[in-house]
């Protein structure tokens, strides 16, 4: 039987997290006025740039592992789950155009704009996950993972695209090198736990082996 793939367009996303944007841009500290001003300009330039869209389907855990390659990490991350939601999300191509537009005029702006795009796509994923948790009567959302995480191979992108057909639904395409375009796009899966949501949320950096990462989140 063919799985129902649903799609959703978001009119708005939560407010910008400026600290997060600066983190993506490689700036760790609260900053000088000059940078703050530039960031303000970049955020203003992003007005009506984003078109947040998601398409998704819900699988049983068994179905998930029938479709996707075997992976210890995926097993671990879907422990205590009986359903798995697989989704693709994107904030659209315009941000890529905007970054490129400034790439030749102001690299600093281009850097901040791409950081804004990264923050927005993460925000979109967070909003979507929270919605799915709410929809499933508050069941906890397990760790979100994407092709390339742990031993869940990057080639799983092919299964993702075959399952969700995101190029038709939300305009996300896959290159021969398995990169997504628009670049501010995510494909991911997460389990719905059998238990109800408990308070501690893992940051995305927990459980990552890389120690010397410029982007590591501090708790």
């Amino acid at each position: 039987m063919r799985k129902a793939v649903l799609q959703k367009t978001y009119a708005a996303l939560p407010p910008y997290d400026q600290h997060e944007i600066l983190r993506y841009a490689g700036a760790r500290e609260a900053t000088d006025g000059q940078l703050q001003e530039l960031l303000g300009e970049c955020i203003a330039a992003c007005e009506s740039v984003f078109t947040p869209r998601v398409c998704y389907t819900e699988l049983t855990k068994a179905e998930f592992f029938e479709i996707f390659p075997q992976s210890e990490s995926a097993r671990l991350w879907t422990k205590d789950c009986d359903r798995v939601i697989v989704f693709a999300a994107s904030v659209g191509l315009e941000i890529d155009r905007l970054v490129n537009r400034y790439a030749s005029v102001s690299t600093a702006k281009a850097l901040l704009l791409q950081a804004i795009g990264a923050e927005r796509i993460e925000a979109l994923c967070d909003v979507f996950c929270a919605e799915q948790s709410a929809r499933s009567a508050g069941r906890a959302v397990a760790r979100r993972f994407s092709p390339g995480y742990g031993d869940f191979p990057l080639t799983a992108q092919k299964e993702m695209f075959a399952l969700l057909d995101p190029s038709k639904r939300i305009g996300v395409t896959l290159t021969d090198a398995l990169l997504m375009s628009p670049t501010k796009s995510v494909t991911a899966a997460f389990g719905l736990k059998n238990s109800v949501c408990h308070s501690k949320t893992e940051t995305r950096c927990d459980g990552c082996a890389q120690k010397d990462c410029a982007y590591k989140k501090e708790n």
């Binding site: 841009a25 700036a27 760790r28 900053t31 940078l35 690299t107 600093a108």
Partner: peptide
């Protein structure tokens, strides 16, 4: 100092 500032100076 950090990357954004470095780039602003470069510009």
């Amino acid at each position: 100092t950090f990357l954004p500032q470095l780039l602003m100076s470069a510009e």
